[in-house]
Amino acid sequence: MKCSKCGAKAVAWLPASNAAYCKKHFNYYYERKVKRLLPKMLDQKKDVVGVGVSGGKDSLVMLWLLHKNRFNVVPILVDEGIKGYRDKTIPYAEKLCRELGLELHKVSFREEYGKTLDEMVKEGGRNACSYCGVFRRDLLNKTARRLGCTKLAIGHNLDDEVQSVLMNFFRGELERIARGGPVTGIIEDPKFVPRVKPLRMCSEKENVIYALINGIEYSDIECPYATTAYRGVVRDAVNMIESRYPGTKISILRTSDRLVEILRRELKPEGGLRYCSECGEPSAEKVCKACQFRNEIF
């Protein structure tokens, strides 16, 4: 197959765009897509961008691109304590940060909450993804704030975004859909570092191709808890539809972004964001989810 732009040997075939690209033109296509989004999320001159990194492809490609585009980045790694998984991905994050001359700020569930995720799962009654989602969000926000970050970039890709939208839709969780979009959160609050998703228009496959073409080494192992997640069922269903009707994922995300605007106007809470009565962190409820979970486990 030949590159649709220059006729050179193609390395990527993108059915949704009905185009094939060589290395050079894939990079051009991919970077242009991300660069178009960045000004809507980040101010290159003013923002200090906390970057959540894990050692996986999405977060490392994101860090690499933000650094390449001269953003002031602060890489943050949350070690949840998943034996045989996180300990194997961390070296990749450390390596890229070394290569880029960046200090990697590492924090962990054990240091912050007293237990690893493995211990929480063993002792608590909930599934791993529930604990991980809540505690990761809490710890990333606290750490980004402590380090003076004005935005927090997370490596959610197109597939993650579409899966989240549909999962929230299937569960009837309108408030969660309203918190989505390119910049998360319904209202502004000094304790909440707004989260941005620079790779939200890039598919998981495009991120793999970009990483391989540009020599960004990453861990390709899967989280051992991922197989139990509802997300996997939604992922398979969406992939099946996308393979028959290319462009479905992008269409779902665009529709969702329009919905987010409408929902935010409807659901905006009066009187600002609430604070957890126990830890003082921003919360949608009287006691935040992290404290609710902590009270259950400890």
Binding site: E204, I221, A226
Partner: peptide, 19 residues
């Protein structure tokens, strides 16, 4: 559409990884 040859080693890089 890439033609293969006897003895080729093909590496499969998984698209899905991480959490």
């Amino acid at each position: 559409d890439e033609p293969l040859h006897d003895g080729d080693e093909i590496k499969l890089v998984p698209v899905v990884s991480g959490g």
